[in-house]
């Protein structure tokens, strides 16, 4: 659905996007990951046909530069920070609805879908950040486009609204929409994405499934294992013997770092040694750590 082929975008001497290629298949959700300045936004602008670039981007076979309008009508775009004309939310919806040639009955439908009903007659400047984001979603979905491009889509939402939206997006994805989004929350990436494209300094440095992302990066999961106090020494010894770097945190908790795939092994070992495990918590590698890793020279 989205084909990015050897796309390079130069600003004077700097290559903001450097020979990037990837594909997004129909119905697939792909997350763009990378630090600020990695070229994600520039790439999204190229996909939207807002910048001229070298290489080729096609959406469903349509070249975004040559058939910019047709290509753009395939996309529903949600910017990171939506800015609207100073009109009523309804007028804005109607305006973009008319641009996309949708039936006006659709407006009511979409307003209910994103939950804007009570705010629809307010001026856009009077809407809260969350409401603006909803409006932005409504506009993106108004013509029911096959592709959604979302730039940090939930950054302005509270926890409850975020959950709602993630659910909505996933539903849309399940209905067959192709989704390309950038995010910095691993839970979102894992919840939504089928694939992650990691960018660094304009280049694609890695592509992987989100659940193996940390592993691919060599990041480890932290396990906190709680055992009765008399067993703590034994447990530490067993695990050390098995090659896990276990540390005793206090009289009944020990901490060890394992790769994501190895999570069950320490438990098995302890059970095999008949040491009772009272409690267990697992800390996945945080996005911050992933980002640090992506930014760093480690890869």
């Amino acid at each position: 659905m989205i084909t990015v082929r050897e796309v390079t975008k130069r600003f004077k001497d700097i290559k903001a996007v450097d020979c990037v290629s990837f594909n997004v298949k129909k119905g697939e959700a792909v997350a763009l990951l990378g630090a600020n300045g990695a070229g994600k936004s520039t790439l999204i602008k190229c996909i939207l046909g807002l910048l001229s670039f070298e290489g080729e981007i096609t959406l469903n076979g349509l070249n975004v530069e040559k058939s910019s309008k047709e290509a753009k009508s395939l996309i529903g775009y949600v910017p990171q920070e939506p800015v609207f004309y100073d009109m009523r939310a309804l007028d804005i919806l109607e305006f973009f609805g008319a641009i996309r040639g949708v039936d006006m009955g659709r407006i009511e439908e979409i307003v209910n879908l994103v939950g804007l009903r009570e705010h629809i007659l307010k001026q856009s400047s009077a809407l809260s950040g969350g409401m603006k984001q909803r409006l932005s979603f409504a506009i993106a979905l108004i013509s029911n486009p096959p592709i959604l491009v979302l730039d940090e889509p939930t950054s302005n939402l509270d926890a409850y609204a975020r959950a709602e939206f993630l659910k909505l997006i996933r539903e849309l994805k399940l209905q067959g929409k192709t989704v390309l989004f950038s995010s910095h929350r691993l839970d979102e990436v894992e919840f939504l994405a089928d694939r992650v494209v990691v960018m660094k300094s304009g280049k694609v440095v890695m592509e992987s499934k989100p659940n193996v992302l940390a592993e691919t990066l060599g990041l480890k999961v932290r396990m906190y294992i709680k055992v009765p106090t008399p067993w703590i020494e034994t447990a530490t010894d067993i695990l050390k013997r098995e090659g896990f770097g276990a540390v005793t945190l206090n009289e009944n908790t020990l901490l060890l770092e394992v790769t994501s795939r190895e999570k069950t092994i320490p438990l098995k070992k302890l059970l095999f040694a008949e040491i009772p495990v009272e409690d267990l918590s697992i800390e996945e590698p945080s996005m911050e750590r992933i980002m640090q890793e992506v930014q760093g020279d480690g890869i």
Binding site: L90, E94, G97, A98, M104, G105, I107, E108, I120
Partner: peptide, 8 residues
């Protein structure tokens, strides 16, 4: 122009 009724 084009101010169609959208139910609101």
């Amino acid at each position: 122009y084009g101010r169609r009724r959208s139910g609101y």
